[in-house]
């Protein structure tokens, strides 16, 4: 009884230093890590209707979205990047996923509100507190990249995310 607990405590104690995807090097590396985490989230996401290709809309100025082009999921479906203007109309009809760049809180909320009721996965790049009601919020920390989760947004959304992925989220 004690031993598993001990190992769990040990593992928990080491968490802050090793959590998430390690980030070393420059912007290139961060972009690659971002691409991996986005791809992985998409990997474990199920839409109500099959999506092929997966249309990934990127809205607003994104710092780390450089690697989000030419990605392919493990089952062979390509990820198609579709840029959307931040100030333009909230046209999300063609989007399976929405990557929200560096927008203000209000702007980001407008976009997330637009996805309500639609089968669109939302990822916010610049919302470490995860208040924009995006489902996933990337968490850039010195040395590592992880994400947070808005459990309400995930619950409301029509897309289904594998619960095992939810466990990987950092606690707020």
């Amino acid at each position: 009884m004690l031993r598993p607990l001990l190992s769990w405590v040990l593992a928990s104690a080491m968490a802050p230093t090793l959590a998430g995807i390690p980030l070393q090097g420059g912007e290139d590396r961060t972009a690659r890590a971002t691409a991996q985490i986005v791809t992985s989230i998409l990997e474990y996401t199920r839409w109500p209707t099959p999506t092929n290709p997966v249309q990934l809309c990127v809205v607003g100025p994104a710092l780390h979205a450089g690697g989000l082009t030419g990605l392919v999921l493990s089952d062979g479906r390509p990820i198609q990047r579709i840029p959307l203007p931040a100030g333009g109309p909230l046209t999300i009809q063609n989007c399976d996923a929405l990557y929200i760049g560096r927008l203000s809180q209000d702007q980001a909320r407008r976009w997330t509100a637009a996805t309500r009721g639609a089968a669109v996965l939302t990822i916010a790049e610049d919302d470490p507190e995860c208040r924009s009601e995006a489902m996933f919020c990337l968490l850039f920390q010195p040395g590592s990249l992880s994400f947070r989760l808005s459990i309400d947004a995930v619950a409301r959304s029509r897309v289904r995310v594998d619960p095992r992925v939810l466990r990987l989220a950092r606690e707020p």
């Binding site: 593992a11 968490a15 959590a19 998430g20 995807i21 992985s40 474990y44 992880s146 095992r164 990987l168």
Partner: peptide, 13 residues
């Protein structure tokens, strides 16, 4: 998923 995400700490826990 932790392997797909490349999150070693998540693998361990």
């Amino acid at each position: 998923p932790a392997i797909v995400f490349g999150d070693r700490e998540a693998i361990r826990s």
